[in-house]
Amino acid sequence: MSTAETEIRRAPEPATIVEAGPSAEGRPAAAPAPVARARWTFWRLLGSELGLTFRRPRNLVMLGVLAAVPVLLGVTLRLMTADDEGGVGGIIAAAAGNSLMLTFASLSFLVTLLMPVAVSVVAGDAVAGEAGAGTLRYLLAAPAGRTRLLAVKYLNAVVYGFAVTAVVALAALVTGLALFPVGPVTLLSGTTVPVAEGLLRILVSVGYVGAGMAALAAVALAFSTFTEVSIGAIAASVVLVVVSQVLRAVPQLDGLAGYLLPTWWNDFDGVLRSPVDTAALGEGLLVFGAYALLFGSVAWARFTGKDITS
């Protein structure tokens, strides 16, 4: 064959995706898809994806476990303080004094490992799981479109990340209200704010931690595009989190800490300053955005150029 022909249609998905021209003439019944319709079908696929994620027993069990931890934490704290035993400090101690503080305490405890594990499972499984099961080839032949499918997979993982955060916050809030005194919240800086503002600050921290989980989801999704074994991608993501947590605890590696994603997750306690430490929160969000962009690009480059041989 002549070399002139060899360059055509090398990519799995040619650049002709949006060309509605030729498709209109062959089958008049299928009108050329307007942008609005394309958008609508995107939400339909996302809906299908969310349905799979939030009906899958494994994912629900993880949400259940994450909801149970704040309850256990609250009950333990209640029993401990009933014995008038000191020894705990910071956010944890404050939780015993005010119903809202249990939410911050729970987030701060769970965001270090348990929440990242849950997000890693869903995002790490996203592409690798479908590849391993063989369903990926049928989704792409449907045709889901590689970029479109990846976007749906990422948004789905982001929604799960926010759901994880919200479930923890909600369980902690309900437990806190049931077990500890309701009243004005004393912040870490010593200032006191009314309950309503305390709730608002909880909402802000849920948004911040959710964004942190969304950044992790991009990392796990990128890993997911490199393998057909989802446990591999999940493990890689969890190991990355654990190693980062260890590294940032080493004082000699202080310079490195800023580049590690987990370093920024606990900075949601900026909402417990007075005024709210927006600089710290903003900086954290920027890091999350950078991570999402970097690993999102890696995932995209890999997934759109990959041979689907499973």
Binding site: P12, R137, Y138, L140, A141, P143, G145
Partner: peptide, 30 residues
């Protein structure tokens, strides 16, 4: 079906660009 990128050569289904052709193609692969 666009799952694997050819090393060289070209192909077309129904005389259409791949993304426009695939919705009109039903497939059973392996």
């Amino acid at each position: 079906l666009g799952l694997v990128a050819p090393t060289s050569g070209e192909h077309a289904l129904l005389g259409l660009p791949l993304a426009a052709a695939l919705p009109r193609v039903g497939a059973l692969v392996e």
